[in-house]
Amino acid sequence: MGTRKLELAEPVVVDRFFSNRRKDIISTALQSYKGHALVDVRKYMHDREGKIVPTSKGITMKVTRLLDLQKAISKAVDKARELGLLDGNEDDGGDE
C-alpha cells in the first residue's frame, strides 16, 4: 500500500494535557513537512510573558510509526501497573 502525499496547511493539535504542577503542557499534533506526514509529541512551557512556547523536549516521527509508538506506550502502561506504579486511571498531573 502506497503512502499518500499530503500537505497540511498547519499542524492539527490532537490532544493536550498538563504534565506537572507548573502547568507545562504535553501536546500531540499531526503535521506535514516536505510531503511527509508526521506526528509530534512535545512539551510546551509558559515563558515570562505567559505565552505557551515549545521546548526541545519531544519527538517527531513519521505517522507510519504511530502504531509502533502506541504499542510501546501500551507496554509501558502494562509494566507500570505490574510494578505498582499505576493503579488504574489515576491522573495526578505529573510531578517531574
Results as ranks from 00 to 15, higher is better:
38 L>H: 13
6 L>F: 08
8 L>T: 13
58 G>T: 11
61 M>K: 13
65 R>F: 05
94 G>F: 00
29 A>M: 10
67 L>I: 06
68 D>R: 02
14 V>S: 12
84 G>I: 04
21 R>W: 00
45 M>S: 09
69 L>D: 00
36 H>K: 15
91 D>R: 07
28 T>Y: 00
32 S>I: 07
54 P>A: 10
75 K>F: 08
37 A>N: 10
78 D>E: 14
46 H>I: 06
34 K>S: 03
7 E>D: 13
40 D>C: 10
13 V>E: 14
89 N>F: 01
39 V>P: 14
81 R>T: 03
14 V>C: 01
87 D>K: 15
55 T>M: 09
35 G>Y: 08
81 R>H: 14
6 L>R: 13
31 Q>V: 00
37 A>L: 15
89 N>M: 04
55 T>G: 05
1 M>A: 14
76 A>K: 07
49 E>P: 01
71 K>A: 09
36 H>S: 09
8 L>I: 04
1 M>F: 12
33 Y>E: 06
34 K>E: 05
82 E>P: 00
5 K>D: 00
20 N>C: 06
10 E>I: 00
80 A>V: 02
18 F>A: 13
31 Q>S: 13
2 G>K: 10
55 T>W: 06
52 I>Q: 14
38 L>V: 14
3 T>N: 09
31 Q>P: 00
84 G>A: 07
9 A>H: 09
59 I>M: 13
83 L>D: 14
21 R>C: 04
26 I>H: 07
66 L>Y: 13
69 L>N: 02
93 G>K: 01
71 K>F: 14
73 I>K: 12
75 K>M: 12
77 V>C: 02
16 R>G: 05
17 F>G: 08
70 Q>A: 08
56 S>K: 15
73 I>R: 11
23 K>Y: 14
52 I>Y: 01
56 S>V: 00
25 I>T: 09
11 P>N: 02
78 D>G: 08
64 T>Y: 14
39 V>W: 08
75 K>R: 04
59 I>A: 03
71 K>W: 11
23 K>W: 12
7 E>G: 07
88 G>M: 04
31 Q>F: 08
5 K>P: 01
94 G>I: 04
91 D>G: 05
9 A>D: 10
37 A>S: 15
59 I>Y: 11
60 T>N: 03
93 G>W: 00
71 K>V: 12
20 N>H: 05
69 L>V: 15
1 M>P: 02
35 G>M: 03
71 K>P: 02
8 L>Q: 05
35 G>C: 11
72 A>H: 12
7 E>S: 09
93 G>M: 10
4 R>F: 12
35 G>V: 06
30 L>G: 01
17 F>S: 08
